[in-house]
Structures are given as C-alpha cells and as structure tokens.
Amino acid sequence: MKLDVVHDLQSVYRKLVDSTSRPGLISDLGKEAALLDGENAAGCSRSLLLLALTLLDPEVTFKVYGSEAEAVEGEINQLTFAKAVQADQADYLFLLKDAGAGYLEHAIENANPGTFANPHKSAVIIAETGAITEGDNLLLSGPGIQTKIGINVELAGDWIEKRNEKNREYPTGVDLVFVDRNHQLLSLPRTTQITESREVEKEWVM
C-alpha cells in the first residue's frame, strides 16, 4: 500500500487537531506511518516525515536539526518544495532523535515567537523524542484539559524551563509537537502549563 496524500494526510491532520485541542491526548500515527514504508531514504522517522507532508508546502519555511540534517532537509524540500532557512526564520523546526542534548533547548530559544500583534507567525517545533506514554511525570493543565492530565516523555534536559521562558509573554511563544519511535504523537501548544511531578512533591512537603 502506498500513502494516499489526500486521505491519509487528512487523517494525520485530524489526529494533530485532536492532540492539539486536547493536550496530553496521545495520537497513534502508526497506520499512516506504515504506508510510508520504503519511501523514506533520509534519516528521519516516518512520523516526522508524515507531519512534514501534512503541513509543509512552498508557502512556509523549515529547518532540521540532527546529524542527518542536510539529507533530511533535502528530502523534505524535494517532497514539499518548502524552503530550508535559518532557525529564527523558520515556520517549522524539525529535531531528529540524534540531534543530541541541548538541541531542543537551542531550538526553543532560537525559534520565532511571533509578535503581540501577530502571534500566529510563531514557529512550531516538531521533535523526535523517547517513548511518549501515559503517566504522571509531567502534569499538564490549560485549555483543552478538564482539570489535569499526566504524561511521560523520555526527554532529558531543561526544555520545560526554556519553554516556560519562551512562552512567558502569552500570546507570543512556540508550540511543540513530539513524536516517538512508535509513532505516538503529543502536542503541547503554548497555552499548556507543564508541571514536573517532582515540583509537585516539593510543594506538597512545604
């Protein structure tokens, strides 16, 4: 079976809508990713490529971080005709799994946060992460979440702090989308508040 750019990408988009409107809801891109088999020569995961195919075209720009960045940029450009640019000008920033420690923080810091008049011109960061599962390491709250929802993401570093800093002056900020090796998708729009459960415990003791 080959990926159908009309129907399969529509279903990827709807999952992205579901996950973005209900942060913490994990969507499974496995079915669509399986259809991409054999089409992906570059070094990025199939779910990352699916998101690129869903969102990118010549009207937007992007940047890839990772050891295979150039090859992946070439591949995405060929498939979508979107232009690869510097991080601070990119509409979409893609982080490959092997980008290494500190790259997500770097991307968050450099990404375009938009302006108060035009917050929609901000960047979206799409990153490959370790396993995304239900859990309680990170507690999410905000629009789309009834009270609180727990989530586990295998991702080291102080990206949460960097993200808080970047999103401090709402409505400016960046939106994050995570995908893992099993094609599980998590979306963290800027309105979502993330609390590490360690901090919750600390508060509890106090």
Binding site: H7, L9, V17
Partner: peptide, 29 residues
C-alpha cells in the same frame, strides 16, 4: 478533488486552524 479543494488550499487552512487552536480566541488570517 476529494472535499472540493486542492490539497494546497486545505493545507493552508489546516495550518491556520492549528494556530487558532493554540491561540484560543485569536483571529488567524
């Protein structure tokens, strides 16, 4: 095409919609 629009038009509307969801109440052009 399925759903009347060409895929490029859909993509542009979809990108705006995702931004709109991330910015509740903000009017995305």
């Amino acid at each position: 095409n399925f759903a009347f629009f060409d895929e490029g038009s859909k993509r542009e509307i979809r990108r705006a919609t995702l931004k709109a969801i991330a910015l509740p109440g903000y009017q995305v052009p």
